[in-house]
Computed example of a mutant assay.
Amino acid sequence: MEKASSNLSIGIDFAYPFRLHQVSFEAPVCEGTRRERVFLIGDSSSSAEFFVTIAVFAFLYSLAATGVYVFFQNTYRENSRGPLVDFIVTVVFSFLWLVSSSAWAKALSDVKMATDPEEVQLLVSACRVQTNKCGSVQGPRWSGLNTSVVFGFLNFVLWAGNIWFVFKETGWHKGASRSVGGASEKQSGTFTQQTQHQGSFDQSRSYSAHGDLSQVSGATSYSNQM
């Protein structure tokens, strides 16, 4: 490679949906002024698109659910089907947030590895020559993508924590509450009846004792008259 061309810099632009195998850049070669086209390695588009799709649908459903809670609160509570559908959708979105966030975290790790400056230099034929020295001027910035992974798992925690509050609005929870309340009232009524029966039994015993005492008194008076 000519000494005059040794200071040439190479810029690589890649973005969503991270089909890296379609991203290319031109690199100089040692033979004269000819340049070669180099493609990156990897394809993380499926995980990235899946993550974004779940985020979009979750956002739209949240807007729709907020409208129902605010403007149709009475209808929502009177109809048992609405809370049940809300509960099922919340469980499904919680699971999807976990899966999509995990998949996107793995895909981001693969993107970082494929775009690492040392890995990219191995794709350039001139850098594989031992007499040539290639170095990186500036690496990729991952702050925004790292934040997206964090927010993905935070959304999973938020949706999973909301399952209990949505479940309390369903007929399943209300039916279980009625069953527990009915069992408690039944046990309380049984205990009250047992207490009343015990009181009646004590009164009958007291009455019988008084009757026996009157008979004894009568017998004693008769003996004194004799």
Results as ranks from 00 to 15, higher is better:
Ala4Ile: 09
Ser5Thr: 14
Leu8Val: 10
Ser9Asp: 06
Ile12Phe: 02
Ile12Asn: 01
Tyr16Thr: 00
Tyr16Phe: 02
Arg19Ile: 01
Gln22Lys: 03
Phe25Ser: 04
Glu26Ala: 09
Ala27Gly: 06
Thr33Tyr: 14
Thr33Lys: 15
Glu36Gly: 02
Phe39Gly: 02
Asp43Ala: 02
Ser47Gln: 10
Glu49Asp: 01
Phe51Tyr: 04
Phe51His: 02
Phe51Asn: 02
Thr53Val: 09
Val56Pro: 10
Phe59Pro: 01
Thr66Trp: 08
Gly67Glu: 01
Asn74Ile: 01
Glu78Met: 12
Glu78Leu: 14
Glu78Tyr: 12
Asn79Arg: 06
Asn79Ser: 04
Arg81Gln: 10
Leu84Trp: 07
Val85Lys: 04
Asp86Thr: 07
Val89Gly: 04
Phe93Ile: 04
Phe93Leu: 04
Phe93Pro: 00
Ser94Pro: 00
Trp97Glu: 03
Leu98Tyr: 12
Ser101Asn: 03
Ser102Tyr: 12
Ser102Val: 05
Ser102Ala: 10
Ala103Asn: 10
Trp104Glu: 00
Lys106Pro: 00
Val111Cys: 04
Ala114Lys: 03
Asp116Gly: 02
Glu118Arg: 04
Leu123Val: 00
Leu123Ser: 00
Val124Leu: 13
Cys127His: 09
Arg128Asn: 12
Gln130Gly: 12
Thr131Glu: 15
Asn132Gly: 07
Asn132Glu: 15
Lys133Phe: 15
Lys133Met: 11
Cys134Leu: 05
Gln138Glu: 13
Gln138His: 10
Pro140Phe: 05
Trp142Pro: 02
Val150Trp: 13
Val150Gly: 10
Asn155Gly: 14
Asn155Val: 13
Asn155Ile: 10
Phe156Val: 03
Leu158Phe: 14
Trp159Tyr: 11
Ala160His: 07
Ala160Met: 02
Ile163Gly: 04
Ile163Trp: 03
Ile163Cys: 05
Trp164His: 12
Phe167Gln: 08
Lys168Met: 07
Glu169Thr: 06
Lys174Ile: 08
Ser179Thr: 03
Gly182Pro: 14
Gln187Cys: 15
Ser188His: 01
Gly189Gln: 14
Gln193Met: 11
Ser200Thr: 08
Phe201Trp: 14
Gln203Cys: 07
Tyr207His: 11
Ser208Arg: 05
Ser214Met: 04
Gln215Thr: 06
Gln215Asp: 05
Ser217Trp: 02
Gly218Lys: 00
Gly218Glu: 08
Gly218Tyr: 06
Ser221Trp: 12
